[in-house]
């Protein structure tokens, strides 16, 4: 491994697999079974653990389930109707989009800067990289609870810090109202997304051959020009992976909001995922309907992104 640094995963997009998939040529023994022995375990596991509950979920969204959990028979499309009549749904969906776009965009931007920074050589680079890992190594739930604790009006040390720095006059109830809760929760979401994203981009940076920089320097290009015309384009595959994974994770993110505000007051700080969870307290069927809608939304979101970024252009 030290002898050869293989190109990073970032170099080839997951979706398009190998650089040169070759047709099956020699058929002997196992090969006669084709891909089955190789990929069947994955498919079985997915069918067993993911698809089965998904089927249950879709079925549940058409059922009338009482608050105690008892199935009272078919509800037809009533639960979907009820869901779309919820007065808060519109705001929840808008906030879901804002939440996803802001968190993913800022995560990507900051990660680009971090990757660039931690790709330089400086004393203590290893240790600082370790520190970068912390939000990843710690559970997202714990990090969110930690921030909730630090932001508490009566007990939170962040209030003391901001008072000492002169940002605020007195302790604030940051998570109590949506106008301040959203920015803080977004900050936490970005915070926990940075390590993975930065590492992906770091891996991408490593795949750029030094000669390219060499050539660019000889051409007399400035640092910024080099970055824009060489680094960024070559970073594209890693960047795309980062965006797609983050899009899915941030859209589906639940523990941060749940731990910090429970989506409240009311539904003021709920994304569709949190909304779904809160609906479960009163109506399991409606909550399942929300999950189905949610899934449709994330698929659309990812497809739009793949289309826009022309993910498959090299395929």
């Amino acid at each position: 491994m030290s002898l050869k640094a293989p190109p990073s995963p970032a170099e080839t997009g997951g979706g398009r697999g190998g650089r040169a998939p070759r047709p099956v040529s020699r058929r002997s023994g196992l090969a006669r079974l084709g891909p089955l022995p190789w990929i069947a375990p994955v498919i079985l596991l997915i069918l067993f653990v993911v698809v089965w509950p998904v089927v249950e979920l879709v079925r549940t969204s058409f059922l009338n389930i009482s608050i105690s959990g008892k199935n009272r028979g078919s509800a037809g499309t009533d639960k979907y109707k009820k869901l779309f009549e919820e007065t808060d749904l519109g705001a929840v969906l808008i906030w879901t989009v804002i939440w996803t776009v802001v968190v993913v965009a800022l995560t990507m931007l900051i990660s680009l800067a971090l990757a660039q920074l931690f790709n330089q050589k400086f004393p203590g680079r290893t240790i600082t990289r370790w520190a970068l890992i912390a939000p990843w190594a710690a559970s997202v739930l714990m990090t969110a609870i930690g921030f909730k604790w630090m932001l508490n009006q009566t007990a939170g040390v962040l209030n003391t810090l901001m008072m000492d720095l002169g940002f605020i006059d007195g302790p604030q109830d940051w998570l109590g109202k949506s106008s301040t809760a959203w920015p803080w929760m977004m900050a936490v979401a970005i915070f926990v997304s940075l390590p993975f994203t930065t590492y992906t981009l770091l891996a991408g940076l490593q795949t750029i051959p030094g000669e390219v920089y060499e050539a660019s320097r000889i051409d007399g290009a400035g640092t910024w020009q080099t970055y824009r015309h060489i680094t960024l384009p070559m970073l594209r595959p890693a960047f795309l992976i980062g965006v797609v994974i983050n899009l899915i994770n941030v859209f589906n993110s639940f523990p941060i909001i749940w731990a910090m505000t429970q989506g409240g007051p009311g539904y003021d700080t709920s994304t569709s995922m949190v909304f779904m969870y809160k609906l479960k307290e009163t109506d399991i069927g409606e909550s399942a309907a929300m999950s189905v809608v949610n899934f449709a939304l994330v698929v659309v979101l990812v497809l739009i992104f793949l289309k826009v970024s022309r993910w498959n252009e090299e395929d």
């Binding site: 508490n152 009006q153 009566t154 604030q172 109830d173 998570l175 109590g176 109202k177 809760a181 505000t261 409240g264 007051p265 009311g266």
Partner: peptide
């Protein structure tokens, strides 16, 4: 009282 009673839990 707390500035946002609607988000203040009894435990707090």
């Amino acid at each position: 009282t707390y500035p946002n009673p609607a988000s203040t839990d009894r435990k707090t």
